[in-house]
C-alpha cells in the first residue's frame, strides 16, 4: 500500500514540476500580453532557445557538436535567460513598433526559424536527435523516485515562487503602472514617446527571458531535448493556461498552468487506458481539440479567465480603434 502511495506522490510531484515549468513560461507571457498587450505567438521558440542554451553549456563535451562545456546548472539557467532575452530584444526591436497582429505573425515566424535552426544546425543543436545526457540536478536520487520527484519539485517551486514574487513587485511598481498605462491608452503611450517603446521592449525581453528559463528547467528535468519538445502546441498550451487562468493575474496564471496541465495529463491517461495502441496517436490529437475548445469557450464566456486582473482597469482596448 505504501509503495503505491509513494508512486502516486512521485507522479503528483513530477506532474507539479512540469506544470510549474510551463507556469514560468506563462508568467513571462503574462508580462508580455497580460500587462503590456504584446502579442507573442512564438512562445515555443523562446522556450526552445533557453533549453538549448542551457543544455549546450552544461552537458559534457560530445564529438561533432559545439558546446559541451560542463558548466554548473546555475550558469546554464542564467545563460538560458540571457539568450532568450537577447532573441526577444532582437525581435522586439524590429517588430514592437508594428501593428499588434504583425507582431503576432513575426513571433510565429521566429518560432518557425528557431525550429529550423534546431533541426538543421546539427553541429550546434544535435539536429533532429537533439541533445541528451543533460545533467539533472538530483541525479544522485535517481533510484529513489519519490525523493527525486520531491527534490525536483522543491527546486522548481522555489524558482517559480521567485519569478512570481519578482513579477508581483514589478507589476505593483511604477514601472508596472506605466506598462498598463501604455496597454490601456494609446494616447498615453504616444505622449511618452520613445520611452513607451523602451518600456514595451523591456517587458518583452523580461518575458522572453522567463520563457527561456522555463526551457532550461524543462531540459534539466527531462534530461534530453529535441525539436519535437518545442512544437507549436507548446505555445498553444501556454496561451491556454494564460487565458483560462486569467490574463493579467499572476496567481491566475499559476492556477491556469495547474488546470491545463491536469487536463492534459488526465486526458493522456484516459487515452492510454481507453484506446488500443494503434489508435492512440489519433486519439491524442483529440486532446488538442479539447484544449482548443476550452480556450475558445473561455474567451467567449469568461474573457477574464478564472481569476481576472485584480486591479480594476478597463478591458483591453482594441489597437485598431
Amino acid at each position: 500500500m505504501s509503495g503505491s502511495w509513494s508512486g502516486w506522490l512521485a507522479y503528483a510531484a513530477s506532474f507539479g514540476v512540469m506544470a510549474l515549468i510551463q507556469g514560468v513560461a506563462c508568467l513571462g507571457l503574462n508580462l508580455q500580453w497580460g500587462q503590456t498587450g504584446l502579442f507573442n505567438v512564438g512562445v515555443a521558440g523562446f522556450v526552445s532557445v533557453g533549453a538549448y542554451a542551457s543544455a549546450l553549456l552544461t552537458t559534457a563535451a560530445v564529438e561533432g557538436r559545439l558546446g559541451g562545456c560542463g558548466l554548473p546548472l546555475v550558469v546554464g539557467l542564467i545563460a538560458a535567460m540571457v539568450t532568450a532575452g537577447l532573441l526577444s530584444a532582437a525581435v522586439g526591436a524590429v517588430t514592437l513598433r508594428l501593428r499588434s497582429d504583425y507582431l503576432a505573425i513575426a513571433t510565429f515566424g521566429i518560432a518557425v526559424v528557431v525550429d529550423l535552426v534546431a533541426r538543421n544546425l546539427t553541429w550546434l543543436t544535435g539536429g533532429p536527435l537533439g541533445i541528451s545526457f543533460i545533467p539533472r540536478p538530483f541525479a544522485l536520487l535517481a533510484d529513489r523516485p519519490l525523493a527525486y520527484a520531491a527534490a525536483s519539485f522543491a527546486l522548481v517551486a522555489l524558482i517559480t515562487f521567485a519569478a512570481y514574487t519578482l513579477l508581483e513587485r514589478l507589476v505593483a511598481s511604477p514601472w508596472g503602472r506605466v506598462l498598463r498605462a501604455i496597454r490601456e491608452d494609446e494616447r498615453a503611450a504616444a505622449s511618452l514617446g520613445k520611452s513607451a517603446a523602451a518600456y514595451r521592449l523591456q517587458a518583452f525581453v523580461l518575458g522572453g527571458a522567463l520563457m527561456g528559463l522555463a526551457g532550461a528547467l524543462q531540459a534539466h528535468t527531462i534530461g534530453f531535448i529535441s525539436p519535437e519538445n518545442f512544437a507549436a502546441s507548446v505555445t498553444f498550451q501556454v496561451w491556454a493556461m494564460l487565458v483560462v487562468g486569467g490574463t493579467g493575474n499572476n496567481r491566475g496564471v499559476l492556477l491556469g498552468a495547474l488546470l491545463v496541465s491536469a487536463l492534459w495529463s488526465v486526458t493522456g491517461l484516459a487515452i492510454a487506458a481507453g484506446f488500443p495502441p494503434e489508435q492512440q496517436a489519433r486519439a491524442a490529437a483529440l486532446r488538442i481539440v479539447l484544449i482548443g475548445l476550452l480556450l475558445s469557450l473561455t474567451i467567449l464566456w469568461r474573457p477574464r479567465g478564472l481569476m481576472g486582473e485584480r486591479t480594476a482597469v478597463s478591458r483591453h482596448l482594441d489597437a485598431d480603434d
Binding site: W239, V243, R282, A285, L286, V289, L295, R315, D318
Partner: peptide, 25 residues
C-alpha cells in the same frame, strides 16, 4: 465586443483544433 486582438489568439486556438481534428479523423 471590440476585442479584435483576442480574435487573433482565438484563431490560433482554432487552427490547432482544426488540424488536430484532421489528425484524429
Amino acid at each position: 465586443r471590440g476585442t479584435a486582438v483576442t480574435a487573433v489568439m482565438a484563431s490560433f486556438g482554432v487552427s490547432m483544433a482544426l488540424r488536430a481534428l484532421l489528425e484524429a479523423l
